[in-house]
Amino acid sequence: MAKFRSALLAACLVVGTPLVTTACTSMPDEVSRQDIDAQSRQALNKLTSENSAARAIAAKSSAVLIFPSIVKAGLGVGGAYGEGQMRHNGAVRDYYSTFTGSWGLQAGAQQYGYAVFLMNDAAVKYVEDSDGWEIGVGPTVVLVNAGVAENLSTSTLKEDAYAFIFDQKGLMAGVSIEGTKITKLDAK
């Protein structure tokens, strides 16, 4: 099964056709679901223990979308794909995939994770009810980097969502989540 999922991921990244993208949004099997649960929990715990801004935002958030491992590759045309979950009050609410396509001057591959803290029930409902949420459309998302984190306090949290990118590894410069599509995985 792992070889199949790897081949499917590679096809999603290289080809990116609607047919392959649809295949990538099927509900993970039981073993994969357990892997996503364990990896998401570990990534979220590490992020909030090492980053005080993430810890403060997590304490005030309504829910979090956590994608512990996203693979990004490109040579002119590229893409990034990963699977994760929405957690609410410490429990898994649903499973999601994240996909970003890109083109332009790029070559290389990298792996990273990201978390999007949803700060209010309206943002959570929007994500749950949408047929795929494209970051940059809908709830306002602030990408928290070192500069933004210095100026955040629990009294200045006014946006719908705050995103953190973590554990970047590989040979590609920069990561952006603008234009990323987050889609609920189909339950079968």
Rank of each mutant, 00 (worst) to 15 (best):
81 Y>S: 04
71 V>I: 13
98 T>V: 13
158 K>S: 15
33 R>E: 11
134 E>H: 02
72 K>Q: 10
34 Q>L: 14
140 T>V: 15
92 V>D: 01
87 R>H: 07
105 L>S: 10
186 D>V: 15
12 C>F: 07
117 F>V: 02
148 V>G: 06
81 Y>D: 02
101 G>H: 06
33 R>Y: 02
182 I>V: 14
93 R>I: 00
150 E>L: 13
17 T>A: 12
15 V>D: 12
111 Q>Y: 10
153 S>R: 08
54 A>R: 02
123 A>S: 11
27 M>V: 11
171 L>I: 14
122 A>N: 13
139 P>H: 06
143 L>A: 11
165 I>K: 04
117 F>Q: 06
182 I>G: 01
128 E>P: 01
26 S>P: 00
118 L>I: 01
79 G>E: 05
94 D>C: 09
28 P>G: 04
171 L>A: 14
51 N>F: 01
80 A>Q: 06
48 T>A: 01
184 K>L: 10
89 N>K: 15
152 L>N: 04
79 G>S: 02
81 Y>A: 08
109 A>C: 08
120 N>S: 03
95 Y>M: 12
5 R>S: 11
151 N>V: 08
27 M>K: 12
20 V>L: 08
187 A>T: 13
108 G>P: 03
20 V>D: 04
102 S>R: 11
100 T>G: 04
33 R>V: 14
14 V>P: 00
115 A>S: 14
38 A>N: 08
65 L>G: 03
77 V>W: 09
28 P>N: 06
126 Y>V: 01
92 V>N: 03
60 K>E: 14
47 L>T: 08
171 L>F: 12
25 T>G: 10
180 T>H: 07
142 V>T: 12
3 K>P: 00
71 V>M: 11
41 R>F: 11
62 S>W: 01
138 G>Q: 01
21 T>L: 15
27 M>W: 10
72 K>G: 00
129 D>C: 04
87 R>F: 14
99 F>T: 02
43 A>G: 04
176 S>Y: 01
36 I>M: 02
96 Y>F: 14
151 N>L: 10
162 Y>V: 05
2 A>I: 15
134 E>V: 11
118 L>D: 06
97 S>R: 08
29 D>S: 06
82 G>A: 03
53 A>F: 04
163 A>E: 04
131 D>H: 11
53 A>W: 03
18 P>T: 07
62 S>M: 09
29 D>P: 02
55 R>H: 13
20 V>G: 05
119 M>F: 04
76 G>D: 06
132 G>C: 03
42 Q>R: 13
10 A>C: 07
73 A>G: 07
161 A>L: 06
140 T>I: 14
158 K>C: 08
34 Q>K: 15
